[in-house]
Amino acid sequence: MSRLRLVLFGLGAVGLAVLWVVATTGLPPVGTDVHPYRDAAVAAAAAHATANVVSSINFDQRTFDTLGEETILLASVVAVTTLLRPADDERVEPPDPPPAVLPATRLAGWALLPVTLLVGADVVLHGHLTPGGGFQGGVVLATALHLLYLAGSFPALQWVRPTRWAPLLEPAGSGLFVVVGLAGLVVGAGFTAEFLPPGVLGAPLSSGTVLLLNVVAGVGVGAAVVSLLGQFLRQEIVIGPGAAP
């Protein structure tokens, strides 16, 4: 059977490779200077005083895609929470004592925690000016929190109780994203329309809703990653074995 599978795959792969060659030889060369969408998007970003054009696309020009992306994140967090819920025949055990960690590791973990939090916040807040934004910053923030676990302080992580607030914060973030989008509709500018003053290009408080949505997304993504990791950690640490399969 596995032989047949490989033969089938091989035939398909060869066929697709041929199609790929047919497709790509007809395309303009990589590195071309013809990018009509780029020209339009850059002009649009400048019109709304958003220095980082990628942020402008994600949070202004094509906010709807980002809304979908945020919803995917929400959906997968809910999905993972649902899938990893303790089954009827499983029990929640007290966590194992954390393994011994070198004092140096522990120290490094604690030392890097504030730095990482700071950088994460910076990445979120300057997403409209410099590389970064809500998503990248959110992941960094969530990772910062899990330095606590990685540096051997699972009790400290439990003390923060991310599994309590993160699953609530994440839908709240997604909901807020939708609300900001709908606000544009309410003020009559249209769904996800810019309704805040754009400000001056390059200023810290420029680009109107882009900054706002970046922050909302950052909170949502951070909470989402925290809850995702929390579910996996819980499996590893506190969920006892189920029945024999």
């Binding site: 980082n52 590389p131 990248q136 992941v139 960094v140 990772t143 990791l229 996996f232 950690l233």
Partner: peptide
């Protein structure tokens, strides 16, 4: 922007998920 995204997901997040899954 993309590099930041890829590095933040690829260096810590996904390997952590994979390893936790393998352990469980």
């Amino acid at each position: 922007d993309v590099a930041l995204s890829q590095l933040s997901v690829g260096t810590a997040l996904v390997p952590l998920l994979v390893l936790l899954t393998v352990r469980t």
